[in-house]
């Protein structure tokens, strides 16, 4: 029955109920839990093993086989490739993570409208999902490094440089998650083929960031792009922390403290811009009606 106008249900304070940051943290944790349950398809260990173990090892074998054609496959080169290939497991997961989470929710789980219509922002939701995807990929990274040890790659004497590791690992992770967020905000506006864009970006980054070959192989102007990517310095930093040696050429010429500075500055710039770009992308998708419309409809 209609009742007289104005008798709104129980009066509740409107402003942020428990503060924006607390709400964002709660959403981040909830979506991280979700990602843990759905990304690690723990019910299907065979699938998981194929994806997390066999695939990265197969690629590592492929790269090493190609490099060995020249006949110059010493342990230093293997070490260079192993760390690059290991870190890139995490890089590609984090770059593709937010886009795949948004598209999965739109196309496959069809939950995006219900999540978008909550007071929570899609930003912490996407970050939470991406962080977990990257962490699961971290397992692949460990497998690749383990394979390197078996192949006789000498690790840093006295174990990894923990101080450097603790500085480099989170900074680099943040920088790729931030870039992934931007890709997510762009791809959610697209209707078709949006799945493959982040993969194309991550493959390009793979070639640019010195993951499997030194920057000198690239043409001069392209080397500038490589040097501007925080990912390049992330991988180099991790090589120093794990192997205890510097890479040959431009990468190795960078002093470690300057490397840290570049990485920190790059990450800061990314996080200054990426949330805005993400929110702008989501708003644009909302305007175009792309948030709630899957490719099938």
């Amino acid at each position: 029955m209609p009742i007289s106008a104005g008798s709104a249900p129980e009066v509740r304070p409107f402003g942020p109920l428990r503060g924006g940051a607390a709400d964002a943290a709660r959403s981040l944790v909830a979506s991280a839990r979700l990602a843990w349950a759905i990304e690690g398809n723990w019910a299907q260990p065979v699938y998981l093993a194929a994806f997390l173990i066999v695939r990265p090892l197969a690629f590592l074998g492929l790269f090493l086989a190609v490099l060995s054609i020249g006949g110059s496959l010493d342990v230093a080169t293997i070490g260079f490739v192993v760390v690059g290939q290991a870190v890139f497991q995490i890089v590609s997961a984090a770059l593709e993570g937010p886009t795949h989470a948004l598209l999965d929710d739109r196309e496959r789980y069809r939950t995006i409208r219900y999540i978008f219509a909550t007071p929570s922002s899609l930003l912490p939701v996407s970050i939470g999902r991406s962080l977990v995807k990257a962490s699961i990929a971290g397992f692949s990274a460990l497998i690749v490094i383990g394979a390197g040890v078996l192949l006789g790659v000498p690790m840093r004497a006295g174990g990894p440089d923990l101080v450097l590791l603790v500085l480099v690992l989170p900074l680099g992770l943040l920088s790729v998650v931030g870039l992934g967020i931007v890709l997510g905000g762009i791809c959610v506006q697209l209707r078709n083929d949006a799945w493959s864009y982040p993969e194309a970006v991550s493959s390009t980054v793979f070639l640019l960031c010195g993951a499997i070959f030194p920057l000198e192989v690239l043409p001069g102007p392209v080397q500038g792009i490589s040097a501007a990517l925080p990912i390049t310095w992330w991988i180099e930093g991790l090589r120093r922390a794990l192997l205890g040696t510097t890479s040959p050429g431009i990468l190795g010429a960078m002093p470690t403290n300057e490397l840290l500075l570049i990485l920190a500055a790059g990450t800061a710039v990314i996080w200054l811009i990426s949330p805005r770009l993400f929110v702008a992308g989501i708003n644009r998708a909302r305007e175009k009606g792309q948030l709630d419309r899957n490719t099938a409809s």
Partner: peptide, 10 residues
């Protein structure tokens, strides 16, 4: 439970 979190409920 996940949605309860998204709705901002403790």
């Amino acid at each position: 439970a996940m949605f309860a979190q998204f709705y901002g409920l403790p």
